[in-house]
Nucleic acid binder design. Structure first.
Lengths: 345, 345
DNA sequence: AGATCATGCGTGACCGCACACGCAGATAAA
DNA sequence: TTTATCTGCGTGTGCGGTCACGCATGATCT
């Protein structure tokens, strides 16, 4: 492990000079600069992060722009827990985060959160963004100054200068769901139940599911949409009606974390157990119905890991100047009654 | 964040004295000792690990006692990758490991490895042990000096003073395997194929599998043992014979990483696809057969995480003096053709 | 030629902790 | 009382960086 002093000695200069070269600060003659850089490359110098963080006064602040934690059945609490874990490990390295949340069903709320970020931009050294509202997010990042790096989490927006994307393969997870459905069911009537409002992600899952299950002509697949914005009573009423209209229904695929709401309806109509239910994400309510067997499978894509990784990506880029993966696709976990107790997202 | 200096000021002593109190080194009067400790507790002082590691000259050496990586179809390469990752993150904190491997089917080899450790005990600050050979391991750790902490990985030995155990719930994973089998198969003849020699773990998985599937009287379950120590030709011969004797066979459960060997036989006998095959661990050969569909499910229990965690447990205990969980049970992952490409162990 | 200024570089004070050294004052031995 | 020993504690240096300060040069100006 090389040190600044060693480099300085080899180059016949002082540590101050080496420091100036490495940080492009102050004034250094061309010759000395070359000489130092040569040695730095030769011995493959890596600064000691401990020493750096110790002497550094600056605190690095990362902004986190995500939906409010209690939306999507507390889904966003899961990535947050990963973010908190990363923060806990990195606080000694002078890393802190500033949270900006928005209502993912309100463009205005998102806009407001963006403005809050923009007004505190000079304090921010990086951004974690969940671009759930894709068009608005695209606009937002396009207005961001070049100097501020950002990573996407959960959803992706094509062709932008983002540092990295950490998320899931939604289409393939839909395929997986279809495979699981075919495992429990040899044939029959299946519906895809989209709970409105939906986003890009959810549609992708649906596409994957349809793509896969349509290749099997033992199944008839249809799709229904239920609005969840309305009151829970009406939601129940509507979904009950769907159940009653489909007495021969054998399977339901819910492409979102709201699976538990469908599970509830199933239980209330005494159809729990006779209908295969496959959904997404290990939020508390879903866990409950998975354990009782009303939900057959949950697909989870390491939400905590996504949060954790997003902070680390920024850390590696901003503090360590290391290169980070442009795209990180997290594992697709299959959760059942029998392994859910051991799961760590 | 409090510092030594602040404590010193509050207690009207010097940093040297505070240091002496915190490390129980040198001589301190009872009164000063009390006074300092009081303040330390009041402000909840946590030493700055960066500064500590920076000033510390000592390198912490952890011994790792595991089977040779190329055994069990390269299984042990997986925990090793996690160990390497932890090492990479912790090398700045002066952590290093020293590897001691043994042939898990040779008591002599294990004994030899233990002796190597014993002869370098004074250089070691902790031990990661995979107690695959349970009795021999029990004897070994009982002879270990009290001063050296150790963690178990993969397998557990009851009633010992180990710092922590990081591993899997084998029984429950057998239950899970049985559930998966029943998902693919409604009824029929299933065999459990133990590949000798077996260990505690494998038997536990078998017990879990039997326990679960015996509750379903649509299945007939039997168990066969095949010795793998003998040549591959004889292995194939024997397992082929088993297949031929059981033309009505519908499912095979292999409670170890050797699943791919059975897969190979299935392919050679043209039974791939008509027999449900469930096994363990994502080693390369298994991945291959999972992707082609010969293996239906693999159960994996985050081997890399196990290795990673084991080093971190020691680190937290030895360097940070933090308390660590006595038992960490890793998740039980279900791997199929459709999610295996995304898996990170 | 002397004053002025820009350039290139060395020095030293931190960051928070570990640890060796050594100095007072109390106590014991002579 | 003098000397030796022990006890309790303060001080200083170093770990590997960051960064402000300021000192020599040589170039430019008047």
């Amino acid at each position: 492990m090389a040190t600044l002093i060693e480099i300085a000695r080899k180059a016949n200069v002082s540590v101050g000079t080496v420091d100036r070269v490495l940080h492009n600060r102050g004034r250094v003659s061309k010759d000395t600069r070359q000489k130092v850089l040569k040695i730095v490359n030769e011995i493959g110098y890596r600064p000691n992060i401990l020493a750096r963080s110790l002497s550094l006064k600056k605190t690095f602040m990362f902004g986190v722009l995500i939906p409010v934690p209690d939306q999507d059945g507390q889904y966003w609490e899961l990535p947050m827990s990963g973010i908190r874990k990363a923060l806990d490990e990195l606080k000694l390295y002078n890393v802190a985060v500033s949270l900006f949340t928005y209502d993912k069903y309100s463009a205005f709320s998102f806009h407001e959160a963006c403005q809050n970020i923009e007004s505190s931009l000079e304090d921010l050294d990086g951004l974690v963004i969940a671009p759930v509202l894709s068009k608005a997010s695209e606009l937002f990042v396009s207005r961001l100054p070049e100097s501020i790096p950002y990573v996407f989490i959960d959803s992706y927006i094509p062709d932008s200068r983002c540092l990295s994307y950490i998320g899931q393969d939604s289409f393939q997870s839909g395929v997986l769901a279809a495979k699981l459905m075919q495992m429990k069911l040899q044939e029959g009537k299946v519906i895809i139940m989209r709970i409105l409002p939906i986003d890009y992600h959810i549609d992708d899952r649906v596409r994957g599911f349809q793509f896969c299950i349509q290749q099997n002509n033992h199944f008839t697949v249809s799709m229904v949409d239920v609005d969840r914005e309305i009151s829970p009573e009406i939601f129940n009423e509507v979904s009950e009606k769907i159940l009653q209209e489909n007495t021969d229904l054998l399977g339901i695929f819910v492409p979102s974390a709201c699976t538990h709401q469908v599970a509830e309806t199933l239980v209330q109509n005494d159809r729990s157990g006779s209908v295969v239910l496959i959904g997404y994400d290990l939020v508390e309510e879903n866990r409950k119905y998975l354990k009782t067997g009303t939900i057959d499978f949950l697909i989870s894509q390491r939400p905590a890991l996504q949060g954790y990784q997003s902070i680390y990506s920024l850390y590696r880029h901003v503090i360590l100047n290391e290169s980070v993966d442009q795209k990180v696709v997290v594992p697709m976990d299959i959760l059942t009654q029998d392994n859910v107790d051991y799961y760590q997202g």
